[in-house]
């Protein structure tokens, strides 16, 4: 393969893969495996052969080339189900998930391995399908992990996803999302809570190919110690995609003396009848709020923890499945406790 993505490549400006891993290690990585738990009406099959579909980034293409096999999950028309994918063997992995017309799926992803993983996942949501996707990436200062999603959303379908990342030596989550039919919706949210040495990069590309579709993005980053949090969010509205509605918010809380947060919220608009807005902010905890709490008798460490939780709250609240939300929240709490310790 050619040189690994590095900071000279615009899309990888804040995440230098070449610095984090040898090209040889990438080339010789094995095929990844998942342990899969299914409920409801979900069929699981081997991906018979590499099918190059969807839009992937550089590393997604590399994963597709290396993973000779993968998994294929299918939810039939009008059916319902849940899937839990736990990454159990690191390496190049590939999955295809198809949710047919009117079907619904809750997809949960976790990982129990470190080392190098490079996963390409393709998701197809049929007309009026409902997909709820939650991915958690645990803190692991040694591992290098790249996930590349290609997601196509048909008319009337909704894709709702949350990405909780607790930092790795290098962690890159890349989403390529196309709203392909009228009334399609995508709602992305995420939290990155990074302790010393952690890195997490979430890069989203949402394209409004059809009109009257809606997209929202809400990402919150906390960077402590010597860590780096990155969010790059690009929203494109294609020519003629009138009635597009897009809102994006990205906020960073910089807590470490040697931490860095980089935000790049980008708009590319080629239709005029649109409503698009983004807001981005980076700062420390609000001193006035801190003072207010302390004046009411809350000790400083507790007050800080309270404000950090408040900062992340609305992003985690985007997870609609109560049980999963509670579990993610408990992991967020643990990460915060570590940060403030």
């Amino acid at each position: 393969m050619s040189a690994l993505p590095n900071r000279r490549v615009e899309d990888w400006k804040y995440t230098d893969l070449r610095n984090a891993i040898e090209g040889e290690a990438v080339a010789s990585a094995p095929v990844a495996r998942w342990s899969v738990t299914l409920s409801g009406t979900v069929e699981q099959n081997e991906l018979p052969e590499i099918m190059a579909r969807g839009t992937h980034g550089e590393m997604g293409t590399v994963a597709a080339a290396h993973a000779k096999s993968g998994i294929f999950l299918h939810v039939g028309k009008g059916e319902q189900g849940t899937v839990h994918l736990e990454l159990s063997n690191a390496g190049h992995g590939r999955a295809l998930i198809v949710v047919e017309e009117g079907a619904s799926l809750t997809l949960r992803e976790t990982m129990s391995v470190g080392d190098f993983s490079n996963i390409a996942i393709e998701i197809v949501a049929g007309p009026n399908a409902q997909l709820h996707h939650i991915r958690e990436a645990n803190a692991d200062g040694e591992s290098v992990r790249v996930s590349d999603y290609s997601i196509r959303i048909a008319q009337g379908a909704t894709y709702r996803a949350h990405f909780a990342d607790f930092g790795a030596k290098l962690s890159r989550t890349e989403l390529h999302i196309a709203l392909e039919g009228e009334g399609a919706e995508v709602h992305l949210s995420g939290v990155s809570v990074l302790g010393d040495g952690g890195h997490a990069d979430v890069t989203t590309r949402v394209t409004h190919s059809a009109g009257n579709a809606q997209s929202t993005q809400l990402f919150k980053l906390i960077a402590g110690g010597k860590s780096r949090g990155v969010y790059q969010g690009k929203v494109s509205v294609a020519e003629g995609a009138n009635g597009s509605d897009s809102r994006q918010t990205a906020k960073g809380l910089l807590l470490g003396e040697r931490a860095e947060i980089d935000l790049k919220p980008e708009l590319e608009i080629l239709a005029d009848d649109v409503k698009c807005a983004h807001g981005a902010a980076i700062g420390d905890l609000d001193p006035e709020s801190l003072f207010y709490l302390r004046s009411r008798g809350v000790a400083e460490p507790e007050a800080r923890a309270l404000l950090m939780r408040a900062f992340l709250e609305d992003a985690v609240a985007e997870i609609t499945d109560e049980d999963i939300r509670a579990e993610v929240w408990s992991h967020v709490e643990a990460a915060l406790a570590e940060l403030t310790a």
Binding site: N242, D262, E266, A277, I282, G283, D284
Partner: peptide
């Protein structure tokens, strides 16, 4: 409907006491 408007902001902070606010609309 034939023109384009694009916004490409880069926001990079390496000091915890800094405050940056960015708003954009199209």
């Amino acid at each position: 409907g034939k023109c384009g408007a694009h916004t490409v902001p880069y926001i990079e902070s390496r000091n915890k006491s800094a405050r940056i606010e960015h708003e954009a609309t199209t």
